[in-house]
Design a protein around this nucleic acid. Structure first.
Lengths: 255, 255
DNA sequence: GCAATAGTGTCTCTGAGACACTATGAG
DNA sequence: CTCATAGTGTCTCAGAGACACTATTGC
């Protein structure tokens, strides 16, 4: 297998892995309009995309999308490819978060899996889910997915991914991945709460808009005339629109 | 290689990786007493442990300690074993931080490396470094290591590990890994600054000891009589000793 | 006294947190 | 007039940040 070099190189005398796949935990937030005729904020729910396996092992069970890495690609490229092939998604936020290598985790042999999480805007998923039959690939509410018996050690991956995404939701600006470019404060607040149910800030609008130390995370959107741009999609009283800036604050427990 | 299952399982028709090693970036902080006869804080420096390679590839060049994973162990166990075998270190803080899988990164073949960083107290390293000849395993100041041409893509690993450790130094209580159980505020401040040179807080002692929102990270040490325990190791005026608690604050950019 | 570390006093101004209040406009 | 969303007014008290000041004690 070695491409070149002295013959005394000896790694080939040991057993080598039978595969190095990537598995991707794809999160999206679905919005459903409330039944009332009046303008109102939608109900949002955090969902995970799962695929029903068609072959051994774990045939018929739900699992994360993913697949084996090729020698010509990096692990990140592999995850991107699987995301495109299995879920039809491109151009999303994707991050590596852990390796799963416990002996015996895969009945097919010695297989070391690399787990990514991806955050996809609902519209991007909806577009493609019409293409294929939705019978074997579905969105599940996270709470439901956490209770399911998934293939391999995928249940642990979903749990770990969720923990990581919750942490990142509060410490970085990944909330932007679930929002349109221009959004209202209520939408942002809703998205944060959808991912982190325990999040509660009564004076949220003041902290995010007027606190000096946080200034710069988001900024007001102005229209072509230079006037503040507002939206009345969710309410009678029009709400100011904001967008994320490039700035991301550095947090510290010591300052 | 598959241990069981139907023969139509087909992963073996693809090429499999030639190895899945772990590499460990071992950080320590060295303390050297100042030359002045008077009591003073030591000079501290962040160091990285490197090993000089004895065989192809990159023979003679400096590299990170590490080695191939076995089928009977998890990647974390592999890193622990390499740490013990190559650097003689046990019982340290170790964290996984990234996978390196770019095709061609290792001339021996298709080798996907898993990078860990470890934080070790100086005393633990000193104990073992007397055992072996120090010619082929040495500590380098980080700044120097960053300028060296290391084997494989290890230079990138050192850079990434340092970035990660700097972030974690400010957002978690890993400073404890470089400190004795009981320490003074000055020692803590010095350790933070050694890892993150840009860190500066003029009123550090007040924030860490009297700010309500940070209360609970550290606590005063009391002696057997219940009186505050102090140390005059570094100064004429005795300083209060503190210890870390189990508490770790949750940071957020939104609250 | 000096040097080096360890702290305190005191000032200003920002901001956190609570809660009542006003604003908007379709149904 | 109601309802849901979108804000503002106003109060208190914590705490950030700056900088001068005191405390300790071997040399």
């Amino acid at each position: 297998m070695s491409t070149e070099g002295p013959s005394n190189y000896s790694s080939s005398q040991f057993r080598t892995p039978d595969g190095a796949p990537s598995d991707i935990v794809i999160f999206t937030i679905t919005s459903t309009e409330k039944a009332t005729a009046k303008k109102a904020l939608p109900t949002r729910e955090l969902q995970v995309l799962l695929i029903q396996r068609k072959q051994w092992p774990f045939e018929g069970q739900w699992a994360l999308p993913g697949g084996f890495c090729r020698e010509t690609e990096s692990m990140y490229e592999c995850a991107l490819r699987e995301l495109r092939e299995e879920a039809g998604v491109t151009d999303m936020h994707m991050e590596y978060f852990n390796v799963y290598s416990k002996p015996g985790r895969d009945p097919r042999g010695w297989i070391i899996s690399h787990a990514y999480f991806a955050l996809v805007h609902e519209h991007r998923l909806l577009g493609r889910r019409a293409d294929t039959d939705a019978a074997d690939v579905r969105l599940f509410p996270v709470e439901e997915a956490l209770r399911m018996e998934l293939a391999f050690d995928h249940a642990g991956m979903v749990r770990d991914a969720l923990e990581k995404v919750r942490e990142k939701m509060l410490t970085t600006t990944i909330a932007r991945e679930f929002l349109p470019d221009e959004f209202t404060i209520s939408e942002l607040y809703q998205v944060i709460q959808t991912v982190v149910p325990t999040f509660e800030e009564r004076n949220f609008i003041r902290k995010i808009t007027s606190t000096q130390s946080r200034q710069g995370i988001i900024e007001e959107v102005l229209d072509h005339a230079g006037e503040p741009k507002v939206s009345n999609r969710y309410s009678q009283r029009a709400a100011q629109l904001y967008r994320f800036t490039e700035y991301s604050p550095e947090l510290s427990i010591y300052s």
